[in-house]
Nucleic acid binder design. Structure first.
Lengths: 157, 157
DNA sequence: TTAAATGCAAATTATTTGCAGAAGC
DNA sequence: GCTTCTGCAAATAATTTGCATTTAA
């Protein structure tokens, strides 16, 4: 976990007069030691490796805090549970392409997209806050080669 | 309800050997007689005005059929229930801007966005299927005038 | 000390499903 | 008549919450 991230998150906790607990530390550590998207359940499992006393309730109570801090983004991919994305710290404007074949999520950034979104928002009379592009797509390689190399090595499916 | 839409939906039912029932008719009529986004619960209420015997279960069983037909799009706006959007028939590539002030959903189309999404997908090695851009934004007018004229007249909030 | 945080278990809520009866073709 | 649909009510599953207890400051 990047020390700068740790510093930011604790500054946020301080500003809100939120206490530092073993459970919160464990959850924060688990959330920001990966670049993968994760679910609440996966975060619980990972947090418990750091601190076995972490309960599901505390994970669910901590997640909104991390989202409010701006360091974690809640993502809805149309499933019946939410994903959390810790990569907005490094790439504040990234978007998601979801592979219909292997279910993998490919992140991408594009400055033209960014400019275009701002343009459209202002044309409509709004100031954009949170922007997200989601593309569901099928893998070209899979069609040709029969395998999908976009599949990432460590897979939580 | 546009006769062409009615024709399409019944052609879809025929092709799948799905039966025509009073309840399905009522639900279809309710779904495609509006240009508003709606929830399953709202669709149930509206369907019952056409046919009081419609049950919640039938609405939930019919919605996936309408989505599969391509005439209705399931939308996830990050809330704990789904919205359904009947406007993809007329505007197959439209996107959504959600006003953070009045919660209204503004639909927009932009051909540059469309081109850019296709470009990015192919650059990443994918063929795009379902694309959605979602912009959460605050209303410029509200900030200046104190009111948000983007609020639509008929409001289900 | 004292307010905040926690774990547990029960509650909540949109959606799904099993089943017996009703209805389309 | 046979199969699909339906309503009902119970099941499901992610998330939230009440409460008694623990803990940070």
């Amino acid at each position: 976990m990047d020390p700068a991230v740790r510093e930011k998150i604790y500054a946020f906790l301080d500003a809100r007069r939120l206490r530092r607990t073993a459970q919160r530390d464990a959850i924060i550590e688990a959330a920001f030691s990966t670049t993968e998207h994760f679910t609440a359940e996966a975060l619980l499992a990972q947090s418990r490796r750091n601190e076995p006393s972490v309960s599901r309730a505390t994970v669910y109570r901590t997640l909104p805090l991390l989202v409010a801090s701006g360091l974690l983004r809640e993502m809805d991919f149309g499933q019946d549970f939410k994903y959390y994305d810790p990569n907005f710290i490094d790439k504040p404007h990234h978007n998601h392409l979801i592979c219909l074949d292997c279910n993998k999520i490919v992140e991408f950034e594009d400055e033209h997209m960014e400019v275009l979104e701002n343009c459209i928002s202002h044309r409509l009379g709004f100031s954009p806050a949170v922007k997200s592009v989601r593309i569901e797509a099928s893998c070209d390689e899979l069609k040709i080669l029969g395998i999908c190399r976009k599949r990432k090595p460590r897979d939580a499916d």
